[in-house]
Amino acid sequence: MTTIALLLITGLGLGALYFLIAAGLSLIWGLMRVLNFAHGAFFTVAAYAGWSAGRLAGGASPDLQWLIAVVVAVVVGGVFATLTEVVLIRPLYARHVGQVLVTVGLALATISLVQGGFGSDPQRLALPAWMTNTTTVLGANIPNTRMLVIVVALIVFALLLFFLQRTRFGLIVRAGVENRAMVQALGIDVQRAFTLVFAIGGMAAGLAGMLAGTYYGSIDPGRGSAMLIFAFIVVIIGGLGSVTGSAVAAVVVGELQQFLNFYGAAGVGDFSVVLLLAIVLLIRPGGFSGAST
């Protein structure tokens, strides 16, 4: 029971990280049909920016340092993503493959630059004491960072739903995912919504970068790309363009990976996630919540 509780909550934490990356990817794809390979770069650059900011604020209390790191990561992720959309994606409007290729180039260039600047070894993250402690749930000692990641992801999920369901821009985004041509025909500037989903996606990815650092205790240049691939899987299983679908799929993928990596040999969990993807695609090519394509 103890092990199961530990695995459940750790898996949920992993799913929370996947969700933060996948939500932006899913919205970007749903609205713009862009497969954004640069999402891993947003994640990595934001994490390193946050880490550097936290170190610059060395005199402050650990809590404040961590908070500064998170805020900087979110801002940097958002700004980087917005610039990417405006400078690189927009000129290639209507050239979908070109857009994908540009994000690929950006991901390669940025991540190797980070690697060159900070080295490829993991950088340890100074965390406040209360985060490194554990809380006992059902007899299992759960690291507090897991809880923190889950709570933050839940808040982001709620905010995203509120944005999509209750605000005017959210309405435009949802309508655009449904039928972009129709929204344009009604005289609404979809371009602004493009920039907006990129900014939101980048902020979520930046937050994920810093939270993944908190979750694992360190940051390294390769993690963004590694997590991006599972986020892609989450996006497809959840149905492209659906935030709720992504949330459900992220939890399923995180738990599956965690349990099978523990009870099977190492790597079995990762492998099974890919297998799950193949099965889902064979049964429902559009994912859980998507229409079949």
Partner: peptide, 14 residues
């Protein structure tokens, strides 16, 4: 090298 190639790639695509 990957940085230079990545930038070259972006310039080519654009």
């Amino acid at each position: 090298p990957l940085f230079l190639l990545g930038v070259l790639f972006i310039v080519l695509v654009l």
